[in-house]
């Protein structure tokens, strides 16, 4: 079961990387954009059915992948198989 974990800075938490990207883009002359936030995506292939995979990934997120204090995460499946 292939899945992705999308990790983003929590709403309201300062995102220095997003801020840096925003600054650089506007220096390059891009206009009419705002609220850039940068997160990350982690791909995982788990040998289990969907429900189990969700449970396992959830535990991985809580124990290692995500800093729950400043990040939110979402488990995304590539496509319904």
């Amino acid at each position: 079961m292939k899945l992705n974990v999308k990790i983003m800075p929590k709403n309201g938490v300062l995102d220095p990387q997003g801020k840096a990207i925003e600054n650089s883009l506007s220096q390059l002359g891009f206009k009419n954009f705002s609220e850039i936030r940068q997160g990350k995506i982690i791909e995982i292939d788990i040998d289990a059915d969907k429900d189990q995979a969700i449970n396992i990934t959830d535990e991985m997120c809580k124990k290692l992948l995500v800093n729950l204090i400043i990040e939110d995460y979402e488990i995304i499946f590539d496509r319904e198989e």
Partner: peptide, 9 residues
């Protein structure tokens, strides 16, 4: 009380 944590830049 966690969401109040400041992030340094």
């Amino acid at each position: 009380k966690r969401p109040t944590v400041q992030v340094g830049d």
